[in-house]
Design a protein around this nucleic acid. Structure first.
Length: 656
DNA sequence: AAACTGACTTAGAATCCAGGGC
DNA sequence: GCCCTGGATTCTAAGTCAGTTT
């Protein structure tokens, strides 16, 4: 199947690039194909009418993002529709009519009533304060206590509405779908340098209550409605400027050094928000490609860089030692750079912003025992070219690096003592995701950490002489364009490549190959600490699987019995029959068991983020081609669109 | 050199929806 | 044919990092 796609996209024709008007349509791909158009009613086939083979074109000059740009502007959020008269808000037990603005904001809160946000003090405090600002002076006089507010009727109303939507007839749903499609076609695309490109987010964010992650000081604040007057349109000089549905744009500009189509400033954090292109677009794809090329470039420099920072562990200047140790963490543990943050944001950290309270040091005295080194860093570091990232040590909760960990055999150790210098990290990182990891580090690193901590309090910065700017400036001297985040990309992709090499054997079944792939992917997700809340249904899902498995086991047992019986009876016909059945059942059971492993190992690990942002897609595609795994097995439609450039470029022997 | 601003990538949760099992 | 589950998609917050301003 992967074949078909290849042909469609294939660019063997050197002539290339002028095939702009390439009208070739999926529908007529194979006149011989015996499935004419019976699938009409089905979802329209992949709409690749035209593929922009930008990789065969000459690049635009540095800093220029486009030559021409046309679009219809963003779609504004629908106007607020008032509640029916009978849907009442109650204050202190009594129904109360609200002004339009007050009612709208009440509705935002009502819709979140089920959510635990509404039980958080900070959220309620912020909400109430902002809500009051929307009230008339009369309302403000009456409504003085959030606890006396009863939003339940409003919440019910919205719930009913969404139930109604779900219960609509087929025709109604169809109509709605058609409408959505029309909107997508109208606003969802733009034209860049003559090529139609999909837009990622053509709808401006609707008003609502701000939901920060973690302990966000601004949670619950009112996110204001964005009007045309707030929006800057960026568009080609010659292009027709879209008309706002109401009012005027804040500004129309023609800046081809940026890639966004529209922008506005959001009122909570004061950040600029942008309308940008979809990942499948040339602009995004090319950046993606360059990102991985940059990471590959690091391969040629990383040995030197590691040697340098190891030497810098003993530098005279404290700032340099700090830089070295921070870099060591970034490199070996795939930590993020860690910019400073202010009090207006959740308290989270990355490498450079670590505080003393985020790490604990300890020395462990181990009997000489090579087995126990399975997850320590030491073996990596002590060997001259230990070049794989440090693995996590299992802490209380984590789902860890799965199968083949040979349990270390205690006891048979020699009496010689072996000191291990341990650092235990525990901090909240991006999105307030907890990073917990205990690793053995080099002695020099350990001694430096003690030095950096001397005379400080827990809330003080570990690296007080270091900022991300300083670090990145240094990195840029090591290699052109090198920054802290390149290490994450590099280590992630390298890990995938190594793990796939290690885990795949040609004779594996497709399912086994997929398990191997997922495990390789998982190793990366663990490295990068990509977590997710365990799906609410996880336990039930596991139960379901278990019962399927035990059913299958029963059936298998039964079949085996029958087989034996037939054999004894010399009943050749049945013998054959049950032999076959046993084989299929065994096969099915095996698949189920693989599924079980996969699912349970995935409980709290999110594979998507690394797949989408850290793993050079060419590694995956080459693996697919080499081991005859259909690309559809690893990448869904959206992902195939995003990685089209890689599908096109990667040969079976591609290596990161 | 610190603070600020802007542009862009990376992130997990929420919501949507299709297709497999009954 | 209907319902439920789980993957796909959407959403937007939260990072990184460079350039500019103070």
């Amino acid at each position: 199947m992967a074949k078909k796609k290849e042909e469609k996209v294939s660019s063997k024709s050197k002539s290339s690039s002028k095939d702009k008007k390439d009208k070739k349509r999926k529908v007529q791909e194979s006149p011989a194909g015996d499935s004419p158009k019976k699938k009409r009613a089905k979802k329209e086939d992949e709409p690749q009418e035209h593929i922009w083979k930008w990789w065969e074109e000459e690049a635009l000059e540095a800093g220029i993002k486009w030559r021409t740009l046309e679009h219809k502007g963003p779609m504004l959020a629908p106007e607020y529709v008032r509640l029916p008269k009978h849907v009442k808000f109650f204050y202190d037990g009594k129904p109360m009519d609200l002004s339009e603005a007050t009612e709208e904001v009440a509705g935002f809160y009502a819709r979140m009533l089920e959510h635990e946000y509404t039980s958080m003090e900070q959220f309620n405090k912020n909400f109430f304060k902002d809500w009051k600002k929307e009230m008339t002076s009369h309302e403000r006089d009456v409504i003085t206590d959030l606890k006396k507010c009863d939003f339940r009727r409003i919440a019910e109303y919205y719930k009913d509405e969404s139930e109604k939507r779900k219960a609509m007839t087929k025709e109604e749903k169809q109509a709605l779908k058609a409408e959505a499609e029309a909107i997508q076609n109208e606003y969802g695309f733009c034209v860049v340098d003559g090529h139609k490109q999909k837009i990622a987010n053509f709808r401006v964010e609707p008003p609502g209550l701000f939901r920060g992650r973690g302990q966000h000081p601004k949670m619950g604040k009112l996110k204001k409605r964005i009007r045309a007057e707030d929006i800057i349109i960026n568009i080609g000089k010659g292009a027709q400027v879209p008309k706002p549905p109401k009012g005027k744009w804040k500004e129309v500009r023609h800046d081809n050094t940026v890639s966004w189509l529209a922008s506005w400033t959001e009122n909570i954090m004061g950040n600029v928000k942008y309308v940008m292109l979809n990942p499948s677009s040339k602009a995004k794809s090319m950046k993606d490609y360059q990102k991985y090329e940059k990471a590959r470039e690091l391969k040629d420099h990383v040995d030197k860089i590691r040697k340098n920072y190891s030497e810098d562990f003993s530098a005279r200047e404290m700032a340099i030692r700090q830089r070295a140790v921070a870099l060591y963490f970034i490199d070996r543990l795939a930590l993020r750079a860690g910019n400073e943050k202010d009090e207006e944001q959740a308290d989270t950290v990355g490498c450079c912003s670590l505080r003393l309270e985020h790490l604990k040091l300890s020395v462990e005295h181990h009997d000489e025992d090579l087995n126990s080194s399975q997850q320590s860093i030491i073996d990596n570091n002590n060997s001259i070219n230990g070049d794989s990232p440090l693995k996590k040590v299992k802490l209380e909760s984590g789902v860890q690096n799965n199968d083949q960990q040979s349990p270390s055999k205690d006891g048979q150790s020699s009496p010689s003592k072996n000191k291990r210098y341990m650092v235990e990290f525990d901090f909240l990182g991006k999105d307030s995701i907890r990073y917990q990891n205990k690793v053995a580090v080099e002695k020099k690193v350990y001694k430096n950490l003690i030095l950096f901590m001397e005379g400080k309090s827990p809330q003080d910065d570990l690296f007080d002489r270091l900022t991300t700017a300083v670090l990145n400036k240094y990195l840029n001297e090591c290699m052109d364009g090198l920054t802290a985040k390149v290490f994450r990309t590099y280590n992630a992709s390298k890990t995938l490549q190594d793990e796939l090499d290690k885990r795949t054997v040609p004779k594996m079944t497709l399912e086994e190959k997929m398990l191997a792939y997922n495990r390789a992917n998982r190793a990366v997700a663990v490295l990068c600490n990509h977590q997710r809340a365990p799906p609410k249904t996880h336990d039930k899902q596991m139960e379901n699987l278990e019962s399927k498995i035990s059913d299958k086991e029963k059936a298998l047992k039964e079949a085996k019995k029958e087989f034996k019986k037939a054999k004894k009876d010399k009943d050749d016909k049945n013998k054959e029959k049950f032999k076959k059945r046993v084989a299929t059942l065994e096969n099915q059971l095996h698949k189920l068991e693989i599924q079980r492993k996969d699912k349970s190992e995935n409980k709290t690990i999110a594979l998507g983020t690394s797949k989408l942002n850290y793993l050079d897609p060419r590694i995956t595609i080459a693996w697919c081609k080499r081991y005859d795994v259909p690309i559809e097995k690893v990448y869904n439609k959206t992902q195939r669109e995003k990685f089209l450039w890689a599908i096109e470029m990667a040969t079976p022997d591609y290596r990161f």
